[in-house]
Design a protein around this nucleic acid. Structure first.
Lengths: 223, 223
DNA sequence: AATTGTGAAGCATTTCACAGCT
DNA sequence: AGCTGTGAAATGCTTCACAATT
């Protein structure tokens, strides 16, 4: 973790800016204002300026931000200026989908190895990346200078996989399993739990709380 | 949206409690304390008590929470006591993985229909749920009393899909596409952007950069 | 004139500390 | 005695307002 006083939420917005800046550069827009970015992202202009100011003064007062310079700076801040190597552990449905998605889309975060313990899968390829046995994680991660681990194994195996990844020198983990991973300080864990997302969505639905509310009354949301 | 003063973060913790409670009930544990839950979730005991207290007093002072009662209450709070119907739009890699995952795991949030515009996919089934053409979304959602929509289509199509879902009376959307959806007030949108997650992970890696570094030369952050 | 960068104010969420039950 | 429920303090993040700069 680099600078503890920068909000995690701000870090999560940087990739959004990056994507917009990419679009703008394709459109050959050379300068963009915080108000402009606000319009395209849904964040407030002040927030955008503050996010960027955490890392220095990239803009020109009275003018705005140079799209190309800003894009490069953000890539550098995120550590994407030279690609970052990642491994994926667990080549089930979700893992496979993720690998395909990521390998097709991202060149800056590269999945360089995929691991699974199912011998039917080992040896097969996903987008040109071979599936290897779990036992090889440690050596391969060292060899390939891997910094990021993505865990898509079932919950009971997740902690063991995390332990191996940590031993292999990984610094950040994206954990799709529904388990609270215990890792040493300095290793960053980001959890994405699809069950949480789905179940919490239900709360924002009119089926919610009130004890004896029976649903199906007439509510037409049509205009 | 039910009660505006309850933090979104608290809602997201409820499914976590629910899962732990499920485990505890399997282990035939009948009473659990907030300290106990804290140990298993990683949240603080006070936070857990506060989360639960938002919805009433479910515990017994000096004793703890009855696992079964608490589980039932949380299910009710989330609106899971009677299943909630959901549809998935976009049967690509991610969508298919999600559908399989969700249909296998969850009975409380049920994917009752899957839509895609690819005629090679239409008519096929994922875990017994048939893939149907996008044009049928509106009528099917009304017929099946669907409350939740999951969007796994490419970014350019996402807004159009969201519009249809809104017209179909959906109240909550889980959006996996990297686009800021515009929806009328009252419709809740939760975004999961895998690109953001992956790219922001890189920040917590030692490849990153010091906040006010003003260098343009390429430096290698390797050890 | 326009737009950035930023201290200060305003909100939201978490943690603290302890009163209140069982 | 033990553990919940909760106002109050602390923390963290966002918005405001404006000085600084081109």
């Amino acid at each position: 973790m680099r600078n503890p006083k920068i909000p995690e939420a701000a870090i999560k917005r940087l990739p959004v800016y990056l994507r917009i800046l990419g679009d703008l550069m394709v459109e050959e827009v050379e300068i963009v204002s915080s108000a402009d970015l606000a319009g395209r992202t849904g964040f407030s202009p002040e927030q955008i300026r503050k996010d960027l100011a955490y890392f220095g003064a990239f803009g020109t007062r009275g003018v705005g931000y140079d799209t190309e310079i800003l894009s490069r700076r953000i890539k550098r801040i995120l550590g994407l200026h030279k690609g970052v190597n990642a491994v994926l552990v667990g080549a089930g449905n979700l893992g496979t989908a993720l690998a395909r998605y990521s390998l097709a889309k991202h060149k800056d975060v590269r999945i360089v190895a995929i691991f699974d313990n199912d011998w039917d899968k080992i040896g097969k390829e996903i987008q040109g990346v071979e599936i290897q046995p779990l036992g090889d994680i440690c050596t391969k991660c060292h060899d390939l200078n891997v910094r990021i681990g993505i865990i898509t194994v079932p919950a009971p195996e997740a902690q063991a996989v995390a332990d191996v990844l940590v031993r292999a020198g990984i610094e950040a983990i994206l954990n799709f399993s529904p388990s609270k991973l215990k890792v040493p300080p300095g290793v960053y864990v980001q959890n994405i739990d699809l069950t949480i997302e789905l179940q919490s969505l239900a709360y924002y639905t009119s089926v919610g709380i009130e004890p004896d509310l029976d649903v199906d009354t007439d509510e037409d949301a049509d205009k």
